[in-house]
């Protein structure tokens, strides 16, 4: 069980570090959103999953409460994160930020 928790933490941390590096390295808003949203959501899922496993493995009422509340926090993250990034992408496009080096931009052509 301990090994499982460490593996989950490892995957989560790798994804989070990748997300923040992607945020610095990519050239424009949309590609940065790709990196930031996917990687940080994936990373938080795995670090939270590690805490959930820890809570259920330790046993006892207090730790089970910790695990259940973590599940609710995970659901909140999963619902709000993609919606927020969608809102940012739409706002960026409407405020006139063009995708750098775009091959095709159907939204620009049709609106």
């Amino acid at each position: 069980m301990t090994i499982l928790i460490y593996v989950l933490f490892g995957i989560g941390l790798a994804a989070s570090v990748l997300g923040s590096v992607a945020l610095v390295r990519f050239p424009d808003v949309y590609t940065r959103l790709h990196g930031a949203t996917k990687c940080t959501t994936f990373g938080s899922i795995f670090t939270t999953a590690a805490v959930i496993v820890y809570g259920f493995a330790r046993g006892g009422a207090a730790h089970q409460t910790l695990a259940i509340h973590s599940i609710i926090a995970l659901v909140a993250l999963l619902l709000t994160n993609p919606t927020g990034s969608h809102a940012i992408a739409r706002a960026a496009h409407r405020s006139g930020v063009k995708p750098v080096g775009a091959v095709v931009d159907r939204l620009e052509e049709e609106s």
């Binding site: 590096v21 990196g35 996917k38 994936f42 775009a102 091959v103």
Partner: peptide, 24 residues
Amino acid sequence: AMARANLDVAYRVITGKIRPGIVK
């Protein structure tokens, strides 16, 4: 698909190979 997405982003962060666009 989400795990594959992360590997995909890792590949693009390291190599910097992108060909972006908005499709319908």
